[in-house]
Write a protein that binds this DNA or RNA. Structure first.
Lengths: 334, 334
DNA sequence: CTGAAAGCGCTTACAG
DNA sequence: CTGAAAGCGCTTACAG
C-alpha cells in the first residue's frame, strides 16, 4: 500500500478507507485525499482473500440451451435488471452465468471458489432434476436462494410470485368473460412446481364455478413460443372443444395465439387467451395479451435481501410476492 | 491446500490442477482424484492475487437511468446474451454493472480493483461526455473495448456494426419502395457517433438517387419509444411533407409508428417506416418492422476476443461487422 | 486511536 | 518432474 506516504501504518490506511470509526477524523481525511490523488483502489483479491468475503453475488440462469442465438426468456431479463439494481444499491457486484441443464459439473460453476458470497438461482428447468443438486449445495453450507415455487416440502429458501393466486385470478377472469371449457397449457407436475401452482389455481377457480376440470384439456409445455404453438396444435388435432386457453407463461400464450390464427381461429372472438409473466412483448402482440403481472422489481430486491441475510446468518423465510392482473385485448370481446 | 494428502507438495498440486504439462501423468491423476473426492475448489481470490489475473471480464452498460423499472434496451439484452456465451466458452466469468451516466465516480466502477482483467463498454450515451473518461482509462493502461461507432479519430479500440452501410441500405430500400421525402429520426451529431454514421449512410443514399437531403427532416431522438413518439409528433406539428421515416433504432421506429397511428396515418400505406437493430419486438409490432439486423452473436464473440487480445498485449484493431436488411410489413405496400 | 506481526491460499521463481 | 522459500496486498487479532 503506497499510501504509507500519509505517514501512517498500513492497517490505519485500510481502516480509513473502509470507513472504520476507530480512525481519527483528521487522519482519515488526509488518507482519503492522498488515496484520491493517487487513484488508489483497494485490491479486492487481497481483501477478499483475507476477509473471506468477496462483496459479490452470483446469478445463475438455467434454461434449455435454446438452439443457437435464440432469445433469453424476456421474463428473466426483467429479473436480471431488477437484481442488478438491487445489488448495486447494496454495494455488491454481480457475477452472471448461464448454465446448460445438461452440464455435469453444475456445482463447479456454483461454488465459484470464493468468487461470490452467495448465489441466486433462476430458471425453468426440471425441478426434480436439480433438487439433488440443491441438496448438495445445502449440505456444503452454501448460501443461495432460488426463484421459483414456494412449497412446504422444499429444503431450499425460495422467493416466488403468488403462482396459485395468479392462476386462480386469471382463470376466474376467463370464466367471467364467458369461457366454459378452458384449456391449460403448461407442464403441471412436480417437474415444474411453478406451473403446477398456477395449474392448481386454475383448477380451483374452475371448481369454484361449479364446473368440472377436464384433464384432457391440460397439455404439457415448457416456456417457449414453439412449445406453446405445438401444444395448441395438439389440442386442435385432438378436436377437443375449448373456448379459452390459460397458458402457463406469456411465451406459451404467444405461441398458442399463432397456432390458433394459423388454424383460422380468431382471438378473442373464437378463443380467449391468457398468459402469465407480463413480459414487455405482451403489450405488443396482436391482440395484446391479457396476463398475470409478476412484480420483478420487488422480486429482485427481495431475492438479494434474502440472500444477504443468509450470508449474515440471519434467519430467513421463503417469500411469496403478490401478483396483479393485466387485462388486455386477448380476453376482451367487442 | 489440503490435498497434501496426495503425498506431494503444494506447488505440485497447484500445477496438476491447472493442467501444467510438467507434472507426471500418474501424479496428476492421483491428485485430481483426491481433489474430486474432497470437492476441492481452488480459491480464486488467492490465485488471482498471486497471478495478477482474475479470469473475469466486466461488462459495463451505460444507459439513461430510465425512470424506474423501465425496460433495458432489448438490443443490449441480445448483446449481453452473446457476450455471456462468448465468455463462458473461453472460461471467463462475467461481472456486470449498469452505470448511470450521471454517476461521478465512473472510473471507480471501472477499475474494479483487479476484480476483472478487462472491460467491455456498452451503451448509448453522450459520446463527447465520456470521451474524456475513455482517455483516462487509456492513460491508466486499462484493458477495455467499446461497442459503438468505429471512427478514424477515436483513441479507443472499438467494435461496431456497419452503421454506415446499414443506413445506406435501408434508405435505398425506402427509396426503391417509392419514398421521396424521407425523415430521419435520431441524433446525428458527434454526441452519438453510431447514429451519425447511420445518418451519413442515409444522406449518401439519398444523394445517390439524385434527391436532396432536407435537413429539416432530421429530428433528434435518443433510442427509446418515447423519444421516437415525440420526434414524430414534432415532425407532424411542423407540417412537413414526408412519405417515409428512417429511424435510427427500432425503439424510435416503434414510437414513431404509434405517433403516426395516433394521428390517423397508416403504416405503410401513408408512410413507410424503418428501424435499426432488429430487436425481437420488431417482428411482433403491427405492422412488423423493416429494419437493419445487427449480428449480435458475432459482435459478442468479437468483443470478447478483442478484449482478450488486449489483455495478452497482442495487437488489435477496431472492427466493423456487416449488417443485413430485414424486410417486413412496415415498408411493404399491398 | 494507532502500529507490529501474522497469515489468508495460492503461484512464481529458483534449485535440484 | 518435484519441492522449499518467498510473497501477492490486504485485514485481523493483539498490544499499547
Amino acid at each position: 500500500m503506497i499510501a504509507h506516504l500519509a505517514g501512517v501504518s498500513q492497517p490505519t490506511v485500510s481502516r480509513a478507507l473502509r470507513g472504520s470509526p476507530m480512525v481519527n477524523e483528521t487522519t482519515r481525511l488526509r488518507i482519503l485525499k492522498i488515496a484520491r490523488e493517487l487513484n488508489y483502489q483497494v485490491d479486492k483479491n487481497a481483501s477478499s482473500l483475507r476477509s473471506k468475503s468477496s462483496g459479490t453475488l452470483a446469478l445463475l440462469f438455467f434454461e434449455d440451451p435454446a438452439p443457437d442465438d435464440s432469445l433469453i426468456n424476456p421474463f428473466f431479463v426483467s429479473m436480471l435488471a431488477s437484481i442488478t439494481r438491487a445489488c448495486a444499491q447494496r454495494g455488491y457486484d454481480l457475477l452472471i452465468s448461464f448454465q446448460q441443464p445438461a452440464n455435469e459439473d453444475w456445482q463447479a460453476g456454483f461454488e465459484d471458489s470464493n468468487k461470490a458470497d452467495g448465489i441466486i438461482l433462476l430458471g425453468y428447468g426440471d425441478y426434480l432434476d436439480y433438487r439433488a443438486r440443491l441438496e448438495f449445495l445445502i449440505a456444503r453450507g452454501m448460501h443461495f436462494v432460488c426463484w421459483g415455487a414456494v412449497r412446504p416440502d422444499q429444503p431450499e429458501v425460495s422467493v416466488s410470485c403468488d403462482n396459485y393466486r395468479g392462476g386462480y385470478a386469471i382463470t376466474r377472469h376467463l370464466l367471467e368473460r364467458g369461457a366454459r371449457r378452458i384449456a391449460f397449457l403448461g407442464d403441471a407436475s412436480n417437474h415444474c412446481p411453478e406451473f403446477l401452482e398456477r395449474h392448481r389455481g386454475y383448477s380451483e377457480a374452475i371448481k369454484a364455478s361449479r364446473l368440472r376440470v377436464n384433464a384432457r384439456l391440460q397439455i404439457d409445455a415448457i416456456s417457449s413460443e414453439q412449445s406453446g404453438f405445438d401444444a395448441t396444435t395438439v389440442l386442435l388435432e385432438r378436436k377437443l372443444q375449448f373456448d379459452a386457453i390459460c397458458a402457463a407463461s406469456d411465451l406459451i400464450a404467444i405461441g398458442a395465439m399463432k397456432a390458433l390464427q394459423a388454424h383460422g381461429l380468431r382471438v378473442p372472438a373464437d378463443v380467449l387467451v391468457s398468459g402469465f409473466d407480463d413480459i414487455p412483448l405482451a403489450g405488443f402482440v396482436n391482440p395484446s395479451l391479457t396476463t398475470v403481472q409478476q412484480d420483478t422489481k420487488a422480486a429482485g430486491a427481495i431475492l438479494v435481501e434474502t440472500l444477504l441475510k443468509l450470508i449474515r446468518n440471519e434467519p430467513v423465510e421463503s417469500q411469496i410476492i403478490p401478483v396483479s392482473l393485466m387485462l388486455r385485448g386477448s380476453t376482451q370481446r367487442a
